[in-house]
Simulated scan of single mutants.
Amino acid sequence: MKAVVITSPGGPEVLQLQEVEDPQIKDDEVLIKVEATALNRADTIQRKGSYPPPPGASPYPGLECSGTILQLGNNVTRWKVGDQVCALLSGGGYAEKVAVPAGQVLPAPDGVSLKDAASFPEVACTVWSTVFMTSRLSAGEAFLVHGGSSGIGTFAIQIAKYYGAKVFVTAGTEEKLAYCKDLGADVCINYKTENFVGRVKEETAGKGVDVILDNMGGVYLQRNIDSLNLDGRLFIIGFQGGSTSQINLASLAAKRLTVQAAGLRNRTPENKALIVKEVEKNVWPAIKEKKVKPVVHKYFSLSQAAEAHQLMESSKHIGKILLLP
């Protein structure tokens, strides 16, 4: 099969489409013929050599895909050959075929094209496991997502609104903010021209928001803490603004705050299967009802992976970038 290989750590130009061995499936895995895969920020970090795949995972990038099941492992009971699915991967999505544990596979959601289904697994599993399963966002609460126009952001806006939260977003251009508003965001803040802490306080009568999903890390840590309400929860999923910070711990105690951080890729297959099951139960109905829709900025072929990475690193996109074999 063909797959995108990281020929050496470096810029987008190190991504080369090459002929490689087909993946071999284990007893609890399925083999998927890939219809589409989607880019994630983690892919660009892996390409630079800073985010190696977990032990035993495919060396090729790609943390999600959609496609058709080609082959079943001996212990797989739920799926059959020919099923149209999407899946959460530990790697290997930038290829014509990929092996994946059966517990990380979801039925392609109703009303969405098979290729666009590739835009959901990583964002849905990330947002559901952090904002809902861990931070327990509930109806009537206020929720802030940084990077509102990203793949994570555009999904988080829609699912948080579906579950009755008031949604705040930050983004860096008026075009991105307008898109977030169209998706349902209630308060849209340009982080380049406004102080988001001040705006959050103003819009919440001085209280702050209840849950924040943050991709910036260090540079935003104290400001996020300052933006939270009593019993507020901050969940950090990225370090685009660095991974170190100095904060005032007294502000955590005074407001009884919770600060957590996690990734998805290095979790155990059992833990991923649990998240995937929860996503199917709680997110898939919202997609079926057309209350959550795929947001795809552009499609590229696998051979254009370098160009797709350049677009992602320019941050000019809104939503997801897909690669099609």
Rank of each mutant, 00 (worst) to 15 (best):
P54N: 04
I225W: 14
P325F: 03
T193A: 10
V209R: 06
V123I: 15
G140Q: 10
S245V: 05
L322E: 03
A117N: 04
Q304N: 07
E35Y: 06
F168R: 01
K115G: 14
T268N: 08
V259S: 07
Q310E: 13
R199D: 12
E270P: 00
D231G: 00
D210E: 13
G151N: 13
G92C: 07
A38G: 15
I25P: 07
A250N: 14
P294C: 06
A38R: 03
F168S: 06
L114R: 05
K255S: 09
E174R: 04
T44V: 06
L323R: 00
Y299D: 10
W128A: 06
G92M: 12
G164H: 02
L324D: 03
D28N: 13
E175R: 12
Q246W: 03
S149M: 00
Q46Y: 03
L89P: 00
P285I: 05
V34N: 06
L15G: 01
L311T: 02
A139D: 05
P269A: 13
V112A: 02
F239K: 09
T7F: 05
C65W: 01
Q104S: 13
D22S: 08
A95N: 10
A160C: 08
L70K: 09
V30T: 02
K290Y: 13
K207S: 14
L322P: 00
S314H: 00
I287D: 15
N40M: 14
Y94L: 03
K176V: 14
E270F: 01
S135V: 05
P269S: 11
S8R: 15
G198T: 14
F196Y: 14
D43S: 11
I6T: 02
C188I: 13
G218H: 11
K115Y: 15
K291C: 05
A142F: 08
E270C: 01
G140E: 15
N224Y: 10
M216T: 15
Q84W: 07
R265C: 07
I152H: 06
V34W: 09
V127A: 11
I225D: 15
I212K: 07
A87N: 06
L252Q: 11
A99S: 07
P9F: 01
A99H: 01
K207R: 13
T204G: 03
Q84Y: 07
D22L: 08
N282H: 05
V112T: 01
S314A: 03
G153W: 11
P9V: 00
I6C: 01
S135Q: 10
K291M: 08
E174K: 08
G263I: 05
Q260N: 14
F132Y: 14
R78H: 11
T204M: 00
V76G: 12
L17Q: 12
V292R: 02
L144G: 10
W284D: 14
A117H: 00
I32F: 03
G49E: 13
V98N: 07
V123R: 04
V81E: 11
A99P: 01
A254N: 12
A308V: 07
K277L: 12
M312F: 09
E278G: 06
L257G: 12
T134S: 13
A95C: 11
R199F: 15
C125G: 01
T173Y: 00
Q304L: 04
M1V: 11
A254V: 13
E141L: 01
E313Y: 01
L221C: 14
